[in-house]
């Protein structure tokens, strides 16, 4: 029984030749990139996300040099300015701080939490998933034991402890979300590895004396690319939502550090009085998450070796 993976792996069964492999993956990459460039929807999404990231990184410069505002300066008497009022492009928030500048700084916080936490959990998920799926046995049992234990303790509880032990901030939230979020994808990777290792091309590689690590990295991981990339993109999007949900429950990033989530939570109370305070962070979250989903899909399609051009 042949599988879809054969086509991408048959050329490297010979092994030992790094050059050969490099050439192959290069061409796969080029092919994927070419496809990606032609996928307009994905490119637009990618562009938007990059723009968001740029704006967030440039927040200090933009707010000081262009907007000339201090995003931390609370002046309650200047609160709830509307859009464009008194030179505030997006108005002011409930404490009279420039809303646009705060959105930019909040972008720094929200995007970096989502990105780094997703990367952290993906790294753990991929390495553990492939290892346990390939070797099975005692390693598998141990990891599954660990996952079960971890998943059985309410996550809110762990968050509570962490937010008490560490000062509640972006760093601790990245750590906790990253360390808690990998189990689902890890099981997916493990399951996929389970079935991959029984396939003919892997059996063949093993028969030819390839080391387990070589098989894992050269044959199994490339076949997991689609799962990993989709998961990563969706994860980043989902983590932005998780962060805002935690803010709502009082366990997320707390003021005065702005995040899109806590800005939205705080503004919901003033929904009727200052709708612009709710709309702006809402739109930013919406667009970013949507783009991440689209990018996930687009990259998956691009990397799919069997896609007809």
């Amino acid at each position: 029984m042949a599988t879809q993976a054969t086509s991408s792996s048959s050329t490297v069964v010979s092994l030992g030749n790094g050059q050969e492999e490099f050439v192959r993956s290069e061409s796969l990459m080029q092919k994927a990139l070419r496809r990606l460039v032609h996928d307009r929807l994905t490119m637009v999404a990618l562009g938007i996300v990059l723009l968001m990231a740029l704006l967030a990184i440039g927040a200090p410069f933009i707010s000081q040099q262009i907007l000339h505002v201090d995003y931390t300066k609370a002046e309650p008497l200047k609160s709830f300015f509307g859009i464009g009022e008194n030179g505030h492009i997006l108005g002011t928030d409930d404490l009279g701080r420039d809303h646009l500048a705060r959105l930019l700084y909040a972008g720094q916080v929200s995007l970096s939490i989502a990105f780094f936490a997703a990367m952290l959990s993906m790294t753990i998920a991929l390495s553990l998933g492939v290892t346990t799926g390939y070797f099975g046995g005692i390693v598998d049992d141990l990891v599954i034991w660990f996952i079960t234990t971890l998943n059985s303790i309410p996550q809110l509880f762990l968050l509570l402890i962490v937010s008490a032990a560490l000062a509640p901030g972006p760093g601790s939230l990245i750590l906790i979300l990253g360390l808690l979020g990998w189990t689902g994808i890890m099981r997916l990777v493990r399951g996929e590895t389970f079935s991959l290792r029984e396939r003919e091309f892997i059996v063949a590689a093993r028969a030819m004396g390839a080391s387990p690590w070589r098989i894992m990295f050269a044959h199994i991981v490339p076949n997991l690319i689609s799962i990993v990339v989709i998961s990563l993109a969706i994860d980043i999007g989902a983590l932005i939502l998780v962060e805002s949900g935690l803010s709502f429950l009082g366990f997320g990033i707390q003021p005065p550090i702005p995040s899109w989530g806590n800005m939205l939570t705080g503004a919901t109370t003033f929904m009727r009085r200052a709708p612009h305070l709710v709309i702006a962070p809402g739109i930013l979250i919406f667009i970013t998450v949507l783009c991440m989903y689209i990018i996930g899909d687009g990259i998956r399609d691009a990397f799919d070796p069997t896609t007809a051009d």
């Binding site: 609370a74 002046e75 309650p76 707390q254 003021p255 005065p256 705080g266």
Partner: peptide
């Protein structure tokens, strides 16, 4: 919310 707003104002 009120105390969070007080705190940020005092800070500023």
């Amino acid at each position: 919310l009120a105390r969070e707003r007080i705190g940020q104002t005092i800070q500023s």
